[in-house]
């Protein structure tokens, strides 16, 4: 954006409700935390009774009693959605933490442990990036026999490459920075430099990488589960709900897929927004932008 020249010296001061980027980010974080907590707590607190089969209340559209309606077995869709989200986020969290750790270790090793290690890891990164996530994920999950364990390990093993590449580049860049070279001539050990110079630079990258990875992991979990290769059908995952609902969409029961899908979308978008905002805020050239 090119700012226009304001003609004249009179300063225009338009007072209106306006939040700067940091305030907006903080607000999104607070909102996201509330959503997260209520979903997790809600998932644990909600009455299992409500998802018991109740053939008297089948296929009801949304109402005050059943906010998201009920399904073909009379189960309350609101309860199912919350439970599904709770499960999805748990899977997403474990997957994203695992993937971030893998990225950190491989990125660091690749940047510091010499040429052979670097070549091997770069090759691995390229290999994983050249195949779509979903395909490798399905392969790994399938090989491990599906289910909770298969999908979690699959998620961990597939989402690290781009972050590992970022970390590798970051470490290499800092290692060759003048201030690190000076530090060496000041007599500091490699370990001291790693702890004081390099690692602090990686924290924001890791945080952002994690934040942006999390929604991806959730979406991929839902996608694989939707395809029937992930979590087993008796678990109330969002992917399961969505895939089951597809059959009933044509009979006009839109609420079965609409609400769970919307909730998933909101959560994914919230995390993406936080990640993007963080990225803008730590970029020194853009940190002060509106």
């Amino acid at each position: 954006m090119i700012p226009g020249l304001k003609i004249g010296t009179k300063e225009e001061k338009v007072k209106r409700f306006y939040l700067n980027r940091r305030q907006k980010t903080l607000l999104t974080i607070v909102v996201a935390t509330i959503i997260l907590l209520s979903v997790v707590v809600g998932g644990a607190m909600l009455d299992q009774e409500r998802i018991a089969t109740n053939l008297n209340e089948r296929n009801l559209p949304p109402s005050l009693k059943h906010l998201f309606g009920t399904d073909w077995l009379g189960r309350d869709m609101f309860t199912r959605t919350i439970m599904g989200l709770s499960l999805s986020m748990g899977v997403g969290l474990i997957g994203a933490i695992g993937s971030t750790s893998i990225a950190l270790v491989l990125g660091m090793v690749s940047a510091t442990m010499g040429k052979m290690a670097d070549r091997l890891i770069t090759w691995l990164i390229d290999l994983f990036l050249s195949v779509p996530h979903l395909v490798t994920l399905i392969l790994i999950a399938f090989t491990l026999g599906g289910g909770f364990k298969g999908i979690v390990i699959g998620l961990m093993l597939t989402h690290w490459p781009s972050l590992a590449r970022v970390i590798r580049a970051e470490v290499m860049q800092i290692r060759s920075a003048e201030y690190v070279q000076i530090s060496q001539q000041m007599g500091k050990s490699s370990w001291w430099i790693a702890v004081h110079h390099i690692f602090p630079h990686l924290i924001p990258q890791l945080l952002i990488g994690f934040m942006l990875m999390f929604p991806h992991v959730i979406l991929h979990e839902a996608a694989v589960t939707f395809l029937g290769l992930g979590l087993s059908p008796h678990e109330p995952a969002i992917g399961i709900i969505l895939s089951e609902s597809m059959k009933y969409l044509s009979s006009g029961m839109w609420w079965l897929a609409f609400f769970p899908g919307l909730c998933l979308l909101i959560i994914v978008r919230t995390f993406e927004t936080i990640g993007e905002n963080f990225r803008m805020l730590i970029d020194p050239t853009r940190a002060n932008e509106k």
Binding site: M1, P3, G4, L5, K6, G8, T9, R286, K290
Partner: peptide, 19 residues
């Protein structure tokens, strides 16, 4: 950059410069 606020005038060839 877009967090800059400008006042005053810059004119080129006798005409005021707009964005």
């Amino acid at each position: 950059p877009n967090n800059a606020n400008i006042s005053g005038t810059i004119s080129y060839d006798g005409e005021i410069l707009t964005a």
